[in-house]
C-alpha cells in the first residue's frame, strides 16, 4: 500500500497549479523514493518532470511501485477542497481503483476525506539523459515570470541567448520587437534568491514558444528562483526547486527556422 502525509498541504495545490495548463492526465508514480510524475503535453513539445521525495513527507510508506493514474482536472477540483494550511494524507492500495485524500485542519477540528477514481494511462516514459548544460542561468522566478509575460505581449517566440555577459531574451511580432537583457549580479548586496547567476562553457542561443514558457511560470509560487539549462540544439530545461522536497522541471523542444 501507499500512504503519504504532507504537513504543508498547500504545496500540493501549488504543484497542481504548475501542471494543470499543460497536461490533463498523468501517472503519479509512487515508489519508496517518493512521488514522481513524468508527462508530456498532448503535442509532445514539452515534458513535465516532478519529484516529491519521501523525506519531505512527515510520514511516508510505499511497499512497492504503484502507478496512480489520475485525471488532473478532477484532482485539482478535489485538492481545492483542502484548506491551504491543511495537512494532506494520500492513500491507496497496491493496485488502486481509488485514491483517498484526507484533509486535516491545522487545529485538528475538521477532518475531510475524498475518494477519487483512478484511471489506466498508457505509460510513455521518455529517457531524459543526464547531461551537462552548456549554459546554466539562475534567476529570481518572479523576474522570469514577468519577462515571459512581457515578451508574450509582443511575440510568440523568444530567442534566448546566453553569454558570460548575461542572458538576452528577444522577440518579434506584428507591432515590433523587444529585447531584454538580464545581467549577472553576484557581487551585489542582494540575497541569494535575488541574484542572477550565469555559468557557461560556450555561448548558446535558441528559440522557444512563449506559450509554453508562460505555462511553466505557473510554478513560480513553488520557488523564489528558477534555473534554465541549455545545450546547443537540445531542449531547454526550466527547473523550480521545491525546498526540502524535490523539484518541478519542464523540458521544452526548440523552434527552428524552417
Amino acid at each position: 500500500m501507499f500512504e503519504a502525509r504532507l504537513l504543508q498541504g498547500g504545496l500540493l495545490k501549488k504543484v497542481l497549479d504548475s501542471i494543470k495548463d499543460i497536461i490533463t492526465e498523468g501517472n503519479f508514480d509512487c515508489s519508496p523514493n517518493g512521488l514522481s510524475l513524468q508527462a508530456m503535453d498532448s503535442s509532445h513539445v514539452s515534458l513535465i518532470d516532478i519529484l516529491l521525495e519521501s523525506e519531505g513527507f512527515e510520514h511516508y510508506r510505499c511497499d512497492r511501485n504503484i502507478p496512480m493514474g489520475l485525471n488532473i482536472t478532477n484532482l485539482v477540483k478535489m485538492i481545492k477542497c483542502a484548506g491551504s494550511e491543511d495537512i494532506v494524507t494520500i492513500k491507496c492500495e497496491d493496485k488502486p481503483d481509488n485514491v483517498t485524500f484526507l484533509f486535516e485542519s491545522k487545529d485538528n477540528d475538521k477532518i475531510s476525506d475524498f475518494e477519487m477514481k483512478t484511471m489506466t494511462i498508457d505509460d510513455e516514459h521518455l529517457l531524459v539523459p543526464d547531461q551537462t548544460y552548456t549554459a546554466v542561468v539562475k534567476m529570481p522566478s518572479a523576474e522570469f515570470q514577468r519577462l515571459c509575460r512581457d515578451m508574450a505581449a509582443i511575440g510568440d517566440t523568444v530567442n534566448i541567448s546566453v553569454t558570460k555577459e548575461g542572458v538576452r531574451f528577444s522577440t518579434t511580432g506584428d507591432m515590433g520587437t523587444a529585447n531584454i537583457t538580464v545581467r549577472p549580479n553576484p557581487s551585489g548586496d542582494q540575497k541569494e534568491e535575488e541574484r542572477t547567476e550565469v555559468q557557461i562553457t560556450e555561448p548558446v542561443s535558441a528559440g522557444f514558444a512563449l506559450r509554453y514558457l508562460n505555462s511553466f511560470t505557473k510554478a513560480t509560487p513553488l520557488s523564489p528562483t528558477v534555473t534554465l539549462g541549455m545545450v546547443p540544439n537540445l531542449p531547454i530545461v526550466v527547473e523550480y526547486k521545491i525546498a526540502d522536497m524535490g523539484h518541478v522541471r519542464y523540458y521544452l523542444a526548440p523552434k527552428i527556422e524552417d
Binding site: H125, A253, I256
Partner: peptide, 14 residues
C-alpha cells in the same frame, strides 16, 4: 517561418 520541434525527436521512449 519557424517550425516547432517535438521532444520525441530528442529523447527516446523507455
Amino acid at each position: 517561418q519557424e517550425m516547432q520541434l517535438r521532444l520525441d525527436s530528442f529523447f527516446s521512449f523507455s
